[in-house]
């Protein structure tokens, strides 16, 4: 390749990431332990107070549940799209892309309109005479789940789809020719090959849920607040050091969560292969 396409072309991008991503990350690290001298009191405070640990566990729990539910709902959707004729696939994907592109703020607002006291569902139910007084749906835990899953599901579907569309369907056909039943061919060939995409999607969804901020603040009650909300609160209270410590705990918990997901996936794959050996 000509000399002109050389490393200098990387510099603008790397410089930008250095200033707006790497150095800020280092600043978080510094703010969490320097206040103004070296101290671990922010981390101690986080680990010692039951409130903070409760929010941490709640964030991890919500993120796991959302990642698992998204994976379960998305898998058949992605499979349906992959099995469709090529020309239709793009149209079906567009139906998934449109909600994917919509801002999280707007989608959370939409759920407020749907679930609110005088919202769409309550109006319809009361109009049909099914209920007398509005049902309380907004500011509850299920509302947070329903909205978070709706917001993250398209990402899982798209990730899962792109992994599935890379699978050579000739392999499944080969298994069929060699005498496997349709279900056997699917289980032994297609599912193990598509599992990677599912896991990647789950990790992305898990990671994004861990940082969720808008949806729990708008749709949940006080007990539904996540770590990100705690960070925001402490920033407004000017407790930057503590906010930084929470942000690092958030990152640490997310990394541990990803390792757990990867291990679970490996075990699952081994179980599938064990079934294969029999």
């Amino acid at each position: 390749m000509p000399r002109i396409f050389r490393h200098w072309m990387l510099w603008p991008a790397l410089a930008m990431l250095l200033v707006f991503f790497l150095m800020p990350s280092v600043d978080i690290l510094r703010a969490s332990v320097m206040d103004p001298e070296l101290t671990f009191r922010h981390f101690e405070r986080f680990l010692e107070r039951a409130v903070y640990m409760r929010v941490l566990w709640h964030t991890v729990e919500v993120s796991f549940v959302v990642a698992i539910v998204c994976a379960v709902i998305a898998y058949p959707v992605a499979y349906f799209i992959v099995q469709s004729p090529r020309r239709v696939q793009f149209l079906l994907l567009l139906l998934i892309f449109i909600p994917l592109w919509m801002s999280i703020l707007i989608r959370s607002y939409a759920w407020m309109v749907v679930l609110g006291r005088e919202g769409v569902i309550n109006s319809l139910l009361m109009g049909a005479g099914l209920i007398e007084t509005p049902v309380r749906m907004l500011f509850t835990t299920p509302a947070v789940y329903v909205a978070m899953i709706q917001i993250l599901l398209p990402i899982q579907i798209v990730t899962c789809y792109s992994a599935m569309s890379d699978i050579d369907l000739g392999l499944v056909r080969a298994a069929r020719v060699l005498g496997a039943s349709p279900w056997e061919a699917t289980r032994r060939v297609f599912i193990p090959l598509s599992l990677d995409g599912t896991i990647t999607g789950m990790i992305i969804v898990f990671m994004l849920s861990m940082g969720f901020f808008i949806t729990p603040a708008l749709l949940g009650g006080r007990r539904d607040l996540l770590l990100a909300n705690l960070i925001e609160f402490n920033v407004t209270q000017l407790n930057w050091g503590f906010a930084a410590a929470i942000a690092l705990m958030l990152l640490l918990a997310a990394i541990v969560g990803i390792v757990v997901i990867r291990l679970a996936a490996r075990l699952l794959l081994r179980a599938l292969n064990g079934a294969l050996a029999r």
Partner: peptide
Amino acid sequence: PIVIPHIFIALGVFIF
């Protein structure tokens, strides 16, 4: 930056 939660980047950029 795709997988790092925006709240983390936001806090960092703010302190910076």
